[in-house]
């Protein structure tokens, strides 16, 4: 096992490395560290099979992150429920979404609301959206804020999605809101995709972001959520957003920016300056690590291991603390 593999498979070690790197006195090359963090998710998946995985935002000592569970604001991210999918990788996506809701209802701190980072449905069928809505009704957190995945805007350029989930939004479904001093920005990067390209925000949405954050104080914690990762995870599989750098440049003044994405059906994280990037597990099926299969298609794992590679993400913020604590839990 190489040194990199050891790091990948011991998440506590990753957290320690993160603290050292912020201290800047450990001699770890920053570039090398970021690369390590970018790949941490792969290893995190292995750790998750044992139960709970904790991911700490850069600069949050472990003890403080643990305390954060009793914090000021608690919410949950779920992603990629792919209702309607019925292939061998998971023939019961309704069952695993229900398990995710059970997990949410069992959290020690009840979340105030949920974010769904897209691919609610598999084929944009009304009955698929209906089934998800029905299951989410049994969650303790009643409010759900959605952003669309590419599977939610098939055939109708997102008309049905907008009608159901984003009536109050701008443009093709983007919006922002405040919760206890945290500013949330829901972005759409699955529309008008160009041949050969990655996810795309578009000039209109980027101009809106600039206006949206203009009057905010730089101390305001920012949470950005969107379906396709807003950092380049693996362009060969389209896992990135081509104009995300322009959007993130508009958030430079803020001390704490947390970016939550889905799409790749596995946990990955990366820290770059003031920005922590995090991708969530799917509640439906896992996808392979970048480049580890012929395609990013659904990955079939033994039935008794499936719920170990699906999950939810719990996020807590504490007043006075700059970073949010992000905790991933498998459905086991």
């Amino acid at each position: 096992m190489s040194k990199k593999d050891e790091i990948l498979h011991d998440h506590d070690l990753i957290a320690t490395v993160a603290q050292d790197a912020t201290g800047g006195h450990d001699g770890i090359d920053r570039r090398g560290f970021l690369k390590c963090m970018a790949w941490a998710g792969t290893g995190a998946l292995c750790v998750m099979q044992g139960g709970v995985l904790k991911s700490y935002a850069l600069g949050t000592p472990g003890s403080r992150a643990a305390k954060a569970s009793a914090g000021e604001l608690s919410f949950v991210q779920i992603s990629d429920s792919h209702m309607g999918f019925n292939k061998p990788a998971n023939t019961d996506v309704a069952g695993t979404l229900k398990a995710a809701v059970d997990k949410i209802n069992g959290l020690s701190t009840a979340p105030e609301f949920m974010l769904h980072t897209g691919d609610i449905s598999h084929l944009s069928k009304p009955e698929e959206f209906d089934a998800v809505d029905q299951i989410l009704k049994s969650a303790s957190a009643k409010d759900v804020f959605f952003v669309p995945g590419e599977h939610d805007v098939l055939n109708d350029d997102g008309k049905q999605y907008l009608e159901r989930y984003a009536k109050q939004s701008h443009g093709q479904g983007w919006y922002s809101f405040e919760k206890k001093g945290v500013h949330f920005i829901g972005l759409v990067n699955v529309m008008n995709l160009k041949a050969g390209g990655l996810g795309s925000l578009g000039a209109e949405q980027i101009a809106w972001i600039e206006k949206d954050v203009k009057s905010l104080k730089s101390s305001t914690p920012i949470v950005v959520f969107a379906h396709i990762p807003l950092w380049t995870v693996y362009p060969e599989w389209g896992w990135g957003t081509q104009d995300s750098a322009q959007a993130l440049a508009l958030l430079k003044k803020f001390g704490s920016v947390t970016v939550l994405n889905g799409h790749i059906h596995q946990i990955m994280q990366k820290v770059e300056g003031n920005v922590t990037f995090h991708t969530a597990c799917s509640t439906a099926f896992p996808q392979p690590a970048p480049g580890k299969a012929d395609s990013p298609g659904p990955m079939k794992v033994p039935a008794d291991q499936l719920r170990g590679v699906l999950g939810i993400t719990d996020v807590n913020s504490v007043h006075g603390s700059h970073s949010l604590a992000v905790t991933d839990s498998s459905l086991v």
Binding site: L154, L193, A195, G196, G197, L198, P235, E236, G238
Partner: peptide, 12 residues
């Protein structure tokens, strides 16, 4: 005639 998959635009 160039074409692509509008869901996975890397497919051309």
């Amino acid at each position: 005639y160039d074409y692509f998959c509008s869901i996975h635009p890397k497919m051309v």
